[in-house]
C-alpha cells in the first residue's frame, strides 16, 4: 500500500471521529476543539489531492479565523449570561428520518456514478493560476465577495462602537 493511501485513511479516520465528537458531545467547547481536528484533517486531505493552496486557505480561514471566533464567542458569553451552554438533542425522530433519507440518496449517487479516475497532474504555481483566474474569468464573483466582506466589516465595526448616551 503506498503511503499516501495510509495517510488518506488516517486523515479520514481523524475527520470522521472528530466530526462525530462535534455532533454528539454535550459540551460546546469540546465540540469546538474537536472541530479543530476535523478541519485540520480535511486540509490534509486537500494536500493529498494536490490542492496545496486550498489546503492552506482551509487552515487560514477555518482554523485561524472562524474557529477562533467561535471559541471566543463561546468562552466570553458563558460567563456573562450565566446560561450553561450545552447542546441538547431535539426532534430525534424527524432528524433520523431526514438523515437516513440523505444518506440513502448519497449512497445511491456514489455507487451509481461512473467515476473517471485520472492520473494526478503535478501542478506547479497554483497560486498564480488562481490569481489570474480571479482577476479575469471570475472577476465579478470576486468583487461581489469583497464588497460583501467590506460591508460586514463596516457593520461589525459600527456595532462594536461605544454608544454615547
Amino acid at each position: 500500500m503506498p503511503y499516501t493511501t495510509i495517510l488518506f485513511y488516517v486523515l479520514a479516520f481523524i475527520t470522521v471521529v472528530s466530526a462525530v465528537v462535534v455532533v454528539f458531545n454535550k459540551n460546546v467547547i469540546h465540540s469546538a476543539f474537536s472541530l479543530f481536528f476535523a478541519l485540520f484533517a480535511v486540509s490534509g486531505i486537500f494536500v493529498l489531492l494536490r490542492a496545496d493552496f486550498i489546503a492552506i486557505t482551509q487552515i487560514m480561514i477555518y482554523v485561524g479565523g472562524i474557529l477562533i471566533l467561535l471559541l471566543f464567542g463561546v468562552m466570553l458569553t458563558t460567563k456573562i449570561t450565566d446560561i450553561e451552554l450545552r447542546s441538547k438533542n431535539l426532534n430525534t425522530i424527524p432528524g433520523i428520518i431526514f438523515t437516513v433519507g440523505i444518506i440513502s440518496i448519497l449512497v445511491f449517487i456514489i455507487t451509481s456514478t461512473k467515476w473517471h479516475v485520472k492520473a494526478p497532474v503535478v501542478n506547479e504555481e497554483t497560486v498564480s493560476q488562481i490569481g489570474k483566474m480571479l482577476l479575469t474569468n471570475y472577476l465579478l464573483p470576486f468583487e461581489i465577495a469583497s464588497i460583501v466582506l467590506l460591508v460586514a466589516l463596516i457593520g461589525s465595526a459600527m456595532f462594536a462602537r461605544r454608544i454615547k448616551d
Binding site: D52, G64, E125
Partner: peptide, 13 residues
C-alpha cells in the same frame, strides 16, 4: 511553492 503563506497560516495554529 506556497511556502510563505504556509508559514503564516501554520504558525497561527
Amino acid at each position: 511553492n506556497i511556502g510563505l503563506f504556509y508559514f503564516f497560516s501554520i504558525t497561527s495554529l
